[in-house]
């Protein structure tokens, strides 16, 4: 089953928070879209990432709860130390299984599960980071007819992660944060 409302999963690691702030600060609302953030961070630290995001961007953000079904208008943040999966009814599952690419949450895991459920409605965005998590998942998003966007490595604080995807030729677009921002705005139409 593929839904028609677009769903965006944003994966990022080192240096990605700055990019997220740039993308969303001053955006009036995101009522047209569901946005999910899967960001690597050390567990225990940044307990209130959602509060920081709301404070910085003025947009509502919340930490994902298990079985919750996402609605438009909110930035959903994956909690530290759990993988994020999606069920057919589009609800979230938090999963405490082995780390993937030394990461939990792993961006690959969420991209892959999201692609299975959302297919061509999914937009996968990969931001700044220092490891190779995310590229396999993004390839799978594309295989399932979703859209793939990678942050322009020249702009990324840590270009390694975007470069992994670019070298594999799986990015539909290589965008700066400003371009991602207008891309998200365009979806409103």
């Amino acid at each position: 089953m593929t839904s028609s409302r677009p769903i965006i999963i944003i994966g990022g690691s080192a240096g990605s928070l700055q990019a997220i702030f740039k993308m969303f600060t001053g955006m009036q609302d995101i009522n047209h879209i569901v946005i999910i953030l899967v960001i690597h961070r050390s567990r225990g630290a940044d307990q209130g990432l959602e509060e920081i995001i709301t404070a910085k961007t003025g947009l509502p953000a919340k930490e994902i709860e298990e079985k919750e079904i996402p609605v438009q208008g909110c930035l959903y943040v994956c909690p530290p130390d759990y993988h994020l999966l999606f069920e057919k009814d589009q609800s979230f599952t938090l999963d405490y299984s082995e780390k993937v690419n030394f990461c939990r949450p792993s961006i690959d895991v969420s991209f892959e599960s999201g692609a299975d459920v959302f297919g061509s409605s999914l937009i996968g965005i990969l931001l700044s980071g220092a490891n190779s998590d995310g590229a396999d998942g993004l390839a799978y998003v594309r295989e399932k007819k979703g859209k793939t966007i990678v942050q322009n490595p020249e702009e990324a604080q840590v270009p390694y992660m975007p470069l992994q995807a670019i070298h594999r030729n799986i990015a539909d677009h290589i965008f700066t944060t400003a371009e991602i921002r207008s891309f998200i705005g365009e979806l409103r139409k």
């Binding site: 999966l85 999606f86 069920e87 057919k88 599952t93 999963d95 299984s97 599960s113 299975d116 459920v117």
Partner: peptide
């Protein structure tokens, strides 16, 4: 059980 998790396993 969660199908998404079973599928991965």
């Amino acid at each position: 059980y969660s199908k998404a998790s079973l599928r991965r396993r």
